[in-house]
């Protein structure tokens, strides 16, 4: 196979399906990338991790009540559970000397364990919230889903749903970007302008829970974390400006989706994981070549901090 064939391979194999896969992956990754950028700035990257695990009991309870895996109540239940985990984190680290990282660990493991137990107790073994799906996501099965006609095209239904989620997130972002930026960098200043940092905080957490649940089905619980953190982190290494950072994060989301499709077709591997791996590769590129933090530039300028200095910084951060 020559170069050209490698590049056209997905389109030869999947036809228009390749487009749907890219669009789906992009619509999942885009809202994640935007909210994730704020999480990075707020040093709350692992809150995404916590939320993606904590939504579990909410989903189980909502499913137990409605008995329908596609019910919108599942999203509400998951959102509430995600919110509960952030409330527990705050309760622990605001009131005691246990730090935020440990509080996060306590909160999400407890909720996750609760979810597993509830699943065993309420649902039993006969109905399984498919564990394979939790790990792998259903992205690869997209092309077997129901399709809806739109402008004469048969679009897979999940693509439309996810496009809706992405749209809602982007609209929210458009209206609240300034407020979120302000309260992320300086909560006190935001408060003095009459905003409510606490409300913004919980609002953001609810939106993150909502996105996580929406993305959950597509890419699985763990890989959502990657989509939340990787674009923002890569963009953070490339720019000092928030707007530029958000743009780069969106670009990262798009490129991971395209790259993921190629990895998926070339290696015949799981689509969701491929998207994340291509996002990981892009992150490594940003790490090496990023205009702000690129390691190569630092070497080039011989501005590499001496080992003592750099590990001192780490030491301060750890202690």
């Amino acid at each position: 196979m020559n170069m050209i064939e490698y590049i056209t391979l997905p389109w030869d194999v999947l036809g228009i399906g390749a487009l749907w896969l890219i669009l789906m992956a992009f619509f999942v990754a885009l809202p994640c990338s935007q909210m994730g950028s704020f999480l990075i700035l707020r040093r709350m990257a692992l809150t995404g991790d916590a939320i993606s695990h904590s939504v579990f009991p909410g989903v189980v309870i909502a499913f137990y009540i409605t008995g329908d895996l596609s019910s919108p109540w599942l999203i509400v239940g998951a959102g509430l559970a995600g919110l509960a985990s952030t409330v527990i984190i705050e309760l622990i680290h605001k009131w005691t000397r246990v730090k935020q990282d440990a509080a996060t660990g306590i909160s999400f493991t407890a909720l996750f364990a609760l979810g597993v137990l509830l699943m065993e107790l309420l649902l039993g073994k006969n109905v399984d919230l498919d564990l394979e799906c939790v790990l792998h996501g259903r992205l690869g099965l997209l092309l077997e889903d129901d399709r809806l006609a739109l402008f004469g095209l048969m679009v897979p239904a999940p693509v439309l749903v996810m496009a809706g989620v992405a749209l809602v997130t982007m609209v929210l972002l458009f209206f609240f970007c300034r407020v979120m930026m302000l309260s992320s960098f300086d909560a006190d200043l935001a408060a003095s302008f009459g905003y409510r940092p606490a409300v913004i905080h919980y609002g953001m957490m609810f939106v993150v829970s909502f996105i996580v649940v929406a993305a959950f089905q597509a890419v699985g619980a763990i890989l959502v974390i990657a989509l939340l953190i990787l674009p923002g982190a890569a963009a953070y290494l490339c720019s000092y400006r928030l707007k530029v950072m958000l743009l780069i994060a969106a670009l990262h989301a798009l490129l991971s989706a395209v790259g993921g499709l190629y990895l998926h077709v070339w290696f015949n591997s799981n689509m969701a994981a491929s998207v994340v791996v291509s996002g990981g590769v892009l992150f490594v590129l940003a790490w090496l070549l990023g205009p702000v933090d690129g390691v190569l530039w630092k070497w080039f300028k011989e501005e590499v901090p001496t080992p003592e200095e750099s590990s001192d910084q780490v030491g301060n951060r750890l202690s």
Partner: peptide, 16 residues
Amino acid sequence: STRLKSDAALGIVLAT
């Protein structure tokens, strides 16, 4: 080697 804090670094390694 970067400005990323421990939370982001942990998350990236974990997920990737």
